[in-house]
Each structure stands twice: as C-alpha cells, then as structure tokens.
C-alpha cells in the first residue's frame, strides 16, 4: 500500500484550494439567506390564528428534522419536474435555497428565544409611551432581543460552513468536490481529503474561539435575562 506522500500533498494543495472561494461564498450566501428567512419564520409563527400557527410550526419541524441532503436533492433534481411552478436551478442556487431554508428554521428559533427573553415590562412600557406597533418592534424589542443572540448566530455561521460541503453532491465545486475530483483522477484520496480537513480546521477553530469570547463578553453585559444566560442556568444554582 502506498501511504502518505508529501509530493502528492503539495501537488493537490493548489487544486483543492481552488474550491475555497466557492466554499466560502456559498457559506456566506446560505447564511445570509437563513438570517433573512429566519425572520420570516419568527413573524409568521406569531400570526394569531391557531390553525395557521400550528401548520407553520409543523412545517418548521418537518424541515428541521429531515436531512438537508435530501432537501438539496429535492430542490436540485425534483423541483424542475414539479408542474407549473417548477424551474431548473443551477447547483449554487439550489444549495443556497436548500441549506438556507433548512437552517432558517434553526435561526428562526434563535430569534424567537431572543424575543421571548425581552422582559414583558418592556412591551408594557412601550405601550405606556404610546409607541406604534412598528415602533415597538424596531425601537424597543428588537434592539434588545437581537444582540444577546449574536454569539449563537455566530455559531450557526460555523455550522453552516461545515454543512456547505454537502453541496458537492449536487455539483457545487467547493473544496470537497475538488478533492474528490483529484482523488478520482489520480486515485489518491488520502492527501486531498486531509487537506480539506485541515482547511476546515484552520478556518473554523479560530472562529469558534472568537465566538466563545464574544459569548462570554455578552454574558457579562446582558447578565442572566438573555438567551445565553438562560442556557447557562444551573451554574451556581443552589438548593
């Protein structure tokens, strides 16, 4: 068996690196899509009509608990075959839709927990000050609800980055595709796949540390009434 070869490693490195631009831009596109779409979920599930709210909750649950890989295939292979509304989409767009929608259901929950953690007194105070409904949201509630969720949203950026290689299965030419192509061409998988792993580690590990720091800072600033504070409950609890 031929084992590790540095020659192959350095030969494969530029080839794999070529996909990095695509991987990163796909990550950002999917993430932005999920951030925006997440807001959509958060608001439509506040519709005060029970059956509709119930339906939306189950749709979110359905999207969240079925594999993103299958959802990608659905959008890429099946959507064009759907009569009337179906259109063919290129791999990149399919991936943005598929991963974006999948993770928007998670991000919607993050927003929701942020909003629910705003003290009910804030609603009452803004009513007492005669703010309009729109003003309540934009001036009072959201400015308090969103900042504490930033570290959690940051976590989802890293999660998204690690999910993006799924898109190689529908032909998006990110680093994983490049490594697989190299492997298929020269029948050397070890080095290119290791390069991919290293690239992921190099990019995601420092970001994770950064977000960890941010989280600690936020915790100090927003004390315990925030989402993160709530997640950390139990620490120092006594009985």
């Amino acid at each position: 068996m031929n084992s590790w070869s540095w020659e192959v490693f350095f030969d494969a490195f530029p080839a794999v690196l070529e996909g990095l631009g695509i991987t990163i831009s796909l990550t950002i596109a999917c993430y932005l899509f999920a951030l925006v779409f997440g807001f959509g979920w958060t608001f439509i599930r506040r519709i005060p009509i029970k059956p509709i709210r119930w339906l939306i909750i189950w749709v979110m649950e359905f999207i969240r608990s079925t594999p993103p890989l299958v959802q990608l295939f659905f959008i890429f292979y099946a959507w064009p075959m759907v009569p009337v509304i179906g259109v063919a989409l290129d791999p990149f767009t399919s991936a943005v839709l598929g991963l974006g929608i999948h993770y928007s259901t998670y991000i919607g929950e993050v927003y929701r927990s942020g909003i629910e953690n705003v003290d009910s007194g804030q609603w009452e105070a803004s009513t007492a000050l005669n703010f309009s409904n729109r003003q309540k949201w934009t001036k009072i509630i959201l400015p308090q609800a969103i900042p504490p969720t930033i570290p959690m949203l940051g976590n989802y950026l890293i999660i998204m980055f690690k999910e993006v290689p799924l898109a190689s299965t529908i032909g998006v030419l990110g680093i994983l595709s490049m490594a697989n192509d190299y492997g298929a061409q020269y029948w050397r998988y070890l080095e290119p796949l290791t390069i991919v792993a290293i690239l992921f580690l190099i990019l995601s590990y420092p970001s994770a540390i950064l977000i960890n720091r941010l989280e600690k800072k936020m915790n100090r600033r927003f004390d315990k009434k925030t989402v993160l504070g709530r997640m950390n409950k139990g620490k120092g609890a006594v009985m």
Binding site: N2, S3, K162, L193, V196, A197, F200, A208
Partner: peptide, 21 residues
C-alpha cells in the same frame, strides 16, 4: 478536530483516506 471539521469530510476521510494511511 471532530468539531472543527465537517461530518461529510470525516466520512469520506474514514472511508477513502484512512485505509490508505
């Protein structure tokens, strides 16, 4: 290492690369 890399990459690595190494 396992949290920092992607599951699909780990899967391919275990399946294709690990036996070679």
């Amino acid at each position: 290492v396992f949290r920092g890399t992607s599951l699909i990459v780990q899967l391919f690595w275990l399946y294709y690369a690990f036996p070679i190494l």
